[in-house]
Design a binder for these strands. Sequence first.
DNA 1: CATTAACCGAGACGGTACGTCTCGTCTTAAA
DNA 2: TTTAAGACGAGACGTACCGTCTCGGTTAATG
Lengths: 190, 190, 190, 190
Amino acid sequence: MTGDRRPGRPRSEAARQAILAATMSELRERGYAALTVDGIAARAGVGKQTIYRWWSSKADVALTALLDLSETTIAVPDEGSLPADLMGFLAETFRQRGQRPVLVGLMAQALLDPVFAAAFRENFLFRRRAVLREILDRAVVRGEIAPDLDPELLIDVVYGVLWYRLLVDHAPLDDEAGRRLADLVLRAVR
Amino acid sequence: MTGDRRPGRPRSEAARQAILAATMSELRERGYAALTVDGIAARAGVGKQTIYRWWSSKADVALTALLDLSETTIAVPDEGSLPADLMGFLAETFRQRGQRPVLVGLMAQALLDPVFAAAFRENFLFRRRAVLREILDRAVVRGEIAPDLDPELLIDVVYGVLWYRLLVDHAPLDDEAGRRLADLVLRAVR
Amino acid sequence: MTGDRRPGRPRSEAARQAILAATMSELRERGYAALTVDGIAARAGVGKQTIYRWWSSKADVALTALLDLSETTIAVPDEGSLPADLMGFLAETFRQRGQRPVLVGLMAQALLDPVFAAAFRENFLFRRRAVLREILDRAVVRGEIAPDLDPELLIDVVYGVLWYRLLVDHAPLDDEAGRRLADLVLRAVR
Amino acid sequence: MTGDRRPGRPRSEAARQAILAATMSELRERGYAALTVDGIAARAGVGKQTIYRWWSSKADVALTALLDLSETTIAVPDEGSLPADLMGFLAETFRQRGQRPVLVGLMAQALLDPVFAAAFRENFLFRRRAVLREILDRAVVRGEIAPDLDPELLIDVVYGVLWYRLLVDHAPLDDEAGRRLADLVLRAVR
DNA sequence: CATTAACCGAGACGGTACGTCTCGTCTTAAA
DNA sequence: TTTAAGACGAGACGTACCGTCTCGGTTAATG
């Protein structure tokens, strides 16, 4: 007996989808800085209040849109050895770099708005970290990482380089970069 | 020959100082997101146009204020060995972390505004990188770094961790963190 | 015949009463300008659609509420002479001036909305005029009014002063005012 | 000496005129109910803030526009006798009835907004009353009005009929109506 | 007694206008 | 020519109501 539906008109899934799709379109076409709630509403054919009823800001909408897009749980490679796992993880991560404008815009918003920053950390950054941590934890168990090394710092190194290049945009984020980063980490953990 | 003064009223150095001081005060008290040109002008007792005559945006003013503050050329430690130099560099760098709100705000602006991003890279980020590169170059000459390692990647690692922690604010940026980061880098370059 | 009831659930008289009562309460407590359909619905514990099913606007509800309140047919005094009838009529009319906020609000709505204006004229204003006209018609028959005088203009004078004071609120609408207005009219009709 | 100008950019008379002209155009073309601040701003080629800087609401703008239009002091006819003065006053007043939509809209706003109502009374209604009062005062001096009659009540009668017909719109406001109203008043004051 | 049609509450929807905020520019008189 | 002052055009913000719609559930007359 499931019938615990709330009274009243149910939330329109069509409107939700339209809003998220419009948000991604605007982001891709005009960038995060030009994203406006009015614009999303107009493009989605939706009232502005319908956006504000469910999200608190354009950043909140954009975060949902991003999460919705990469909803498929980030696969945690398990190849049996740290080098293989690390290469797989970086390859997978770099492959999603087409979302650079969205990521950069969300980070900018997080820097300006502490409330959004908390949501961004919890729902995005920390979930990504968890994947890498799992890989490293397995490597620790296998004895592939020196026991006096803090895995958290290693995570910071990997994501630090990723985000730094993403934000500063002074060097490529391609497979070659991934290989060299993995190589460096492997040297350090010996 | 005295008269190489330009005609008209000379630029007021007092106004310049007042603007930069007001900018830093506003930043410290209310954060970058709440920084407005009107606010700076009011606090500095200055007309808005006086700001726009010399800077192109509030971010531009904030960048000048930051550079003005840390005007003293960043000292490049030269202790004769990579471990000592690296520790010195990180200690020095971490010591300035009181400017976190300013740095974070400027990075946010750079992410939203490509024009400002260029100025920020040239005048701030790349100058900081140059210091570390000098340290690493000396270490390469001394044979302290494996020749097949790209110093640029090492710089990305150091500044990546720094900025990542600065922006995400999930772990401390203290001396202990500096030691561990230096230790990790030294392990990798063997 | 009994069975001329329509099929389906009959209209809820309780809801009707709750809506009208809520409307009057809101009007008395917060005035016409602050009256909202959402507010009426919430206060009456009723769905908004239940209001729109039976009325076309908040003004329509307010008009019904007013008419419901003063449902008792306005008594037409018949004392046998114009002075007595006129004094009676004015006394009776002024006694209801507690409804000033409602009357003023409905007039405002009528000025802004031609459709409502028609309903307001037919169901309220003209019915009130009819009472006075009956009094004057009897006086004409009795020869108390000069035959070259248009009774309609006299009605305009009486209701004009009433509404003008009601709307502009610059002078009292009390028994004394009624006496003086009646006196003036009696002077004019000689 | 004259030079008491305030510092800063002076208020733009062009903007002021554009706003008032746009307001009158919108009023004439679409009526008071359809008047919006956005509409005025767009039509006047002006920022919305420029309107809100000087007026508190669209009603405030409309009132200024009306006063600006009939700026020429309402002539107080002085023909030497009450009948002539009264006829002249009514003829003059009725001639301006092209402004009916504006007057009706402003009255509606005054009924809904007490703050605006005060401004409307002071700047419009009471100024109009003053004209009629002057005429009546002269007639009192000349002994044309029974000394036991309150001139204020006579003013209420005249403006009451005027506004009642303006608002209810059930009978014409033409010269014939003016003659009959004047005749009625003259009968009453004997 | 089951069906069925109109009603009921709740509340989300698309939409309009509001009044505020900040931006970057423009226009003065004074220095 | 620069300065302080401050009005200006532009445009996004978040809010308040509007009138409509869509649910599950209720209430009688009808079949």
